[in-house]
Computed example of a mutant assay.
Amino acid sequence: MHRMTHLPDRRPVRDRDEAATAAPLPAPTARRRRRPASRQWAAWAFLFPVTVYLVLFYAYPLYRNLDLSLRHYTVRSFVQGNAPFTGLANYRTVFGDPAFGPALTHTVVFTAVCLFFQYAIGLALAAFFDQHFKLSATLRALFLLPWLLPLIVSASTWSWMLNSDSGVVNAALHVIGVGPVNWLTSPEWALTSVITANIWIGVPFNLVVLYSGLQSIPHSLYEAAALDGASAWRRFWSITFPLLRPVSAITLLLGLVYTLKVFDIIWIMTKGGPADASTTFSTWSYQLGFGNLLPAFGPGAAVGNLLVVAALVFGLVYVRIQRKQELA
């Protein structure tokens, strides 16, 4: 009977204790609700400077360039901002210009030749340095010098080397009995000269990226192939080249975008001449917009937009190829 009389008194006490301990439970739930919001604000805070940078230095210039190509701008209207809208008239002017065909041909040849030799030489050097011999790191660092030099220095150096009268290249040719070549002033050699200089500048980038790709390939694959009797050339085509394909794709895409917009090297060495023999879309756009007493801002912007569209198309092609490879 004594136990029975005290049982009803314990239950309310336990219930009060449980209620007291259960009361603070909503507080952690509120914290959980606040944490995602605070994290989201932190993410936006980190993205804000990048967004401002992209809008100011990429989106707005692209918009202004598109606006320039759709209006008839003169020096006065460029300052006052009252240029009349002309639609696609500037693009029709560009396509109908006699300089369009040669500039397009030079751009395609310049880009294709530079990409091929930069990639081929860079891949050969990457495979060579992948052997990890003595002084390998030192030589790799020396090969980076052309890439680290300012472009104005590299282009000026090549202009001096290829000078018809006092260049070291013609001096070397004279030693072996070959007459002087007008590398920069001859229509037959001007484009070849700027292509050579750009290849020399772009090889180190391909070397660095492709060498890093080679480091990710397991050497056990080469050892197994060697045990099976595969030659070095067979190992390259069956192991190195296929496994290096993703790195090669991004290397070629970045090289393509860079080569399409090369301006300073060509302008310093030949200014697009002689007789427009080395004019590309980048130099032609500059000549139209800033190279005359009466600048044609609209056609110059239209040529620049053609380069943007070309780079965008190749970028979309690369993304499509990458998605197919991921799904395969």
Rank of each mutant, 00 (worst) to 15 (best):
M1S: 07
M1A: 08
H2K: 14
L7A: 15
D15A: 13
R16D: 02
R16M: 05
A19C: 06
A19P: 03
P24W: 09
L25H: 10
L25Q: 11
P26A: 13
A27Y: 14
P28R: 08
R31V: 07
R33P: 00
R34P: 00
A37T: 15
R39H: 09
L47V: 10
F57V: 06
R64S: 11
D67C: 00
D67L: 06
S69I: 06
R71Y: 05
V75Y: 06
V75P: 00
V79I: 15
A89V: 09
R92M: 10
D97I: 10
P98T: 13
F100T: 05
G101M: 05
A103Q: 01
L104T: 15
T107C: 05
A112L: 15
A112Q: 05
C114H: 01
F116A: 14
Y119V: 15
A124T: 11
L125V: 00
A126T: 01
F128L: 13
F128Q: 03
F133K: 03
S136G: 08
S136K: 06
T138R: 08
R140E: 12
A141F: 07
L145V: 15
W147Q: 10
L148C: 09
V153S: 12
S156M: 11
T157E: 04
T157K: 01
W160L: 13
W160E: 11
M161T: 06
S164W: 08
V169S: 02
L173D: 07
H174A: 13
V178P: 01
P180L: 04
V181S: 02
T185M: 03
S186K: 03
P187E: 08
T196V: 14
T196D: 04
N198G: 00
N198W: 02
I199Q: 01
I201Q: 03
G202E: 03
F205R: 04
L207E: 04
V209H: 10
G213K: 04
S216V: 06
H219W: 09
H219Q: 14
H219E: 13
S220I: 07
S220D: 15
L221Q: 13
E223W: 07
E223V: 08
E223Q: 14
D228H: 06
R235G: 11
P242S: 13
L244V: 12
L244D: 06
P246N: 07
V247A: 10
G255H: 00
G255M: 00
Y258H: 08
Y258D: 06
W267H: 07
W267Y: 12
I268D: 05
M269G: 05
T270R: 00
G272Q: 02
G272K: 01
G273M: 04
D276W: 02
T279W: 03
Q287A: 13
F290I: 15
G291V: 13
N292W: 10
L293H: 10
L294R: 11
F297V: 09
G298C: 12
A301I: 09
A302V: 09
L307Q: 14
A311P: 08
L312S: 13
L312R: 02
G315V: 15
V317G: 09
V317S: 09
Q322M: 14
Q322E: 15
K324T: 12
A328F: 13
